[in-house]
Design a protein around this nucleic acid. Structure first.
Lengths: 150, 150
DNA sequence: CCATTATATTTGTACCTACAATTGTTGTAT
DNA sequence: ATACAACAATTGTAGGTACAAATATAATGG
């Protein structure tokens, strides 16, 4: 659906504005789909993101600032987000022995098992989402999006 | 910058996932730029969005549900958002005389004047953002984004 | 060794947001 | 006319988030 219809605005707008609105609306849309898919598993988009970051460490622990710089949506309060995951026993945190300012955060077995269950659901969702445009379009979209951030 | 570098992940991912992440990251990016630009004027992205919706009414009042369905990022709590705007005297709300369940919300003179000051700033921002890719690319991006929501 | 600065995380606080329940009003069927 | 459903907005509440200040530890320079 065209963005003008979606936002029910009559006055037509410059392409640059349409681009900005389109981007935000589409990102909201996919974020909502993701949140909905994750809901049955009891975790939020952000928490899922952190869990995947932790898994990506492949056993090596991560500290808070590492997690923060890798998050898709940066947030000011990673401490409390990790707290939530630790409460659910999806990750564990211990004070780093070599540098007691840092904490070492690891995904737990329970966390890995949860991700294993979630993976196919998210894969399918991402696939279904992307396949509305063809492969070549996906590639050029990705390139253009990179450009827009530079 | 490529999304993998940005999120500092080593393992390469399918294009569909790259698309999803790219979208969210890029939308976050432009939202932050907008928020920063609006900060000096003392309003948030959402409040700015509502003000523009109200201006788009061209004198005709809007009610809450109208505003809600036109917002770029839908939210559950438009009442309190409009409260904030009313506190700042940027809009006014009166109970609709013909249907006392509804409220009629109008942008005030002060609101219009504020928008007039903000307009060129946002126009420039949107332009600078979009011009990183060429016109043809903007058009195809907009088309593809529409498709992704269908 | 001590004071200062830098680093890493945590906490306090105020605000924002989602969701559900509530209120007030209108429309409709009996 | 009255009860009931539908509608529009508001409010309570719990949880999320940003920002700044505080805490704790480590590194550095005199």
């Amino acid at each position: 659906m065209k963005i003008e219809e979606l936002l029910k605005t009559k006055d037509k707008m410059p392409e640059s504005r349409r681009l900005v609105l389109n981007l935000i609306v589409t990102a909201n849309h996919i974020s909502e789909l993701l949140a909905e898919a994750l809901k049955p598993f009891g975790i939020s988009n952000q928490q899922f993101n952190v869990l995947r970051i932790l898994r990506g460490q492949k056993g090596k622990p991560a500290n808070l600032s590492t997690i923060q710089e890798r998050m898709v949506s940066k947030m000011s309060n990673t401490t409390r987000l990790v707290d939530k995951l630790a409460d659910k026993e999806l990750c564990e945190r211990i004070v780093c022995p070599s540098n007691r300012r840092k904490v070492e955060i690891r995904i737990t077995k329970k966390g890995l098992e949860l991700l294993k269950k979630i993976d196919p659901v998210i894969d399918k969702l991402e696939n279904d989402f992307a396949k509305k445009i063809n492969e070549k379009e996906i590639l050029s979209l990705n390139t253009n999006l990179n450009e827009l951030r530079s």
